[in-house]
Design a protein around this nucleic acid. Structure first.
Length: 274
DNA sequence: CAACTGGTTCAGCATCTCAT
DNA sequence: ATGAGATGCTGAACCAGTTG
C-alpha cells in the first residue's frame, strides 16, 4: 500500500474520506468561523486530518514538517509533510488550478533567519534597498530554506537514531479552497510538491519591497515573491498542474451544528448537571 | 487582481519577583 | 541568596485584509 500525495494520487475513496473528514469540522468544532454558525477546519485541524488519513502523526508545534508519515513497508523510513492552506481570493480560481492556475504557499515569514544568512554572505539591507544582488539574494533564500529541511532531518534522526527521514520524498501539500459561493459552498483541492525549487530561477526587483523569482518554465510568470523589508514573507506560486500529485476537487457537507454543551451532554448524560 | 500589509497565536527565552 | 513560578518580549507560524 503506497502513500497518497507522496507516491501517487489519492483514490476516489481517499478523497471521499478527506471530504467527510473536512466536513466534520463544519459542525461547530472547526477552528475557523464560517458564517451562519458554521465553522470550518483551521490549519491545526487540517494537520490532524492529513495525519489520520495518511496514517502519520501531527506535530502541531510549528516545526518545519507538520505531519510525519512512515513508509507503508518500512516504518523506519519517515516522510515529512509541510502543510499549507490558502483561500484563493478570486471566486473561480479554484477551477483554474486545472490549467494555468497557481497554488499559493507562504513558505516562511522569518525575515530574521533570512537576513542572518544574507549577512553571512556579505549582503546588507542597503543592497536590497538599492536593488542590488538580486540573483545572489535569491539563491541564498533558496539555500536557507533547504537548510531548514536538512536541520529538521538531522534533529529527527538524532532523536530517533534507528529511523531515517527521507527528504527526497517529503513534500509540501497545499490545500487550496475557494471563498464561499451560493449554491456551491467552498471547493477544496490538495496538491503536493517536492521540497526542492526549480533550477535557473531569474531574480529581479519588481518594486522597492519585493524581490521576485520568475518561473523558468514560463518567464512571464511569478514563481516566488520575497518581501524582504515587510514581514519577510516568502511566497511560492508553483503551477498547480505541475504538482506531483493532487486530489480531485471536493465540496463540504453540512452537518448538524452541535454545541459544546450538547456534545458534553452526549458524552456524559448522567454527569451533566441540568 | 496583483502587490503589499496586518492581525492573532504561541513557543522559547530572558528577566523579574518573592517566599523561603 | 536562591530558585521556581510569573511576566514580558521576540520571532515564527498561521490566515486574511487593504490598496491602487
Amino acid at each position: 500500500m503506497s502513500i497518497p500525495y507522496i507516491e501517487r494520487n489519492p483514490t476516489n475513496d481517499e478523497v471521499l474520506q478527506m471530504q467527510l473528514a473536512f466536513s466534520t469540522f463544519c459542525d461547530g468544532s472547526g477552528q475557523e468561523r464560517d458564517g451562519n454558525g458554521m465553522t470550518r477546519a483551521g490549519w491545526r485541524d487540517i494537520e490532524r486530518i492529513f495525519a489520520e488519513i495518511l496514517g502519520g502523526k501531527a506535530n502541531e508545534n510549528k516545526h518545519i514538517f507538520d505531519v510525519l508519515v512512515p513508509d507503508s513497508d518500512n516504518e523506519d523510513i519517515i516522510y515529512g509533510i509541510s502543510l499549507k492552506s490558502k483561500q484563493i481570493s478570486r471566486a473561480s480560481a479554484i477551477e483554474d488550478l486545472e490549467e494555468e492556475g497557481r497554488v499559493h504557499m507562504e513558505i516562511a515569514n522569518s525575515p530574521a533567519k533570512f537576513w542572518a544568512e544574507l549577512t553571512k554572505a556579505g549582503i546588507s539591507e542597503s543592497d536590497f534597498r538599492s536593488k542590488n544582488k538580486a540573483s545572489e539574494i535569491g539563491q541564498i533564500l533558496l539555500k536557507t530554506i533547504d537548510s531548514w529541511h536538512l536541520e529538521a532531518k538531522t534533529a529527527f534522526e538524532t532523536q530517533n537514531p534507528d529511523k531515517r527521514l527521507d527528504l527526497n520524498k517529503s513534500v509540501y501539500i497545499t490545500v487550496s479552497y475557494s471563498p464561499f459561493r451560493d449554491g456551491i459552498g467552498r471547493l477544496y483541492q490538495a496538491h503536493s510538491f517536492p521540497l526542492t525549487f526549480p533550477e535557473n530561477i531569474k531574480w529581479s526587483y519588481i518594486s522597492d519591497r519585493c524581490l521576485r523569482g520568475m518561473d523558468p518554465t514560463d518567464e512571464n510568470k511569478t514563481l516566488i515573491d520575497w518581501y524582504g523589508l515587510s514581514g519577510g514573507q516568502f511566497k511560492y506560486y508553483p503551477k498547480a498542474n505541475t504538482a506531483n500529485y493532487k486530489s480531485a476537487r471536493f465540496s463540504l457537507l453540512e452537518p448538524e451544528i452541535i454545541s459544546i454543551v450538547e456534545k458534553a451532554k452526549t458524552y456524559w448524560p448522567e454527569k451533566w448537571p441540568e
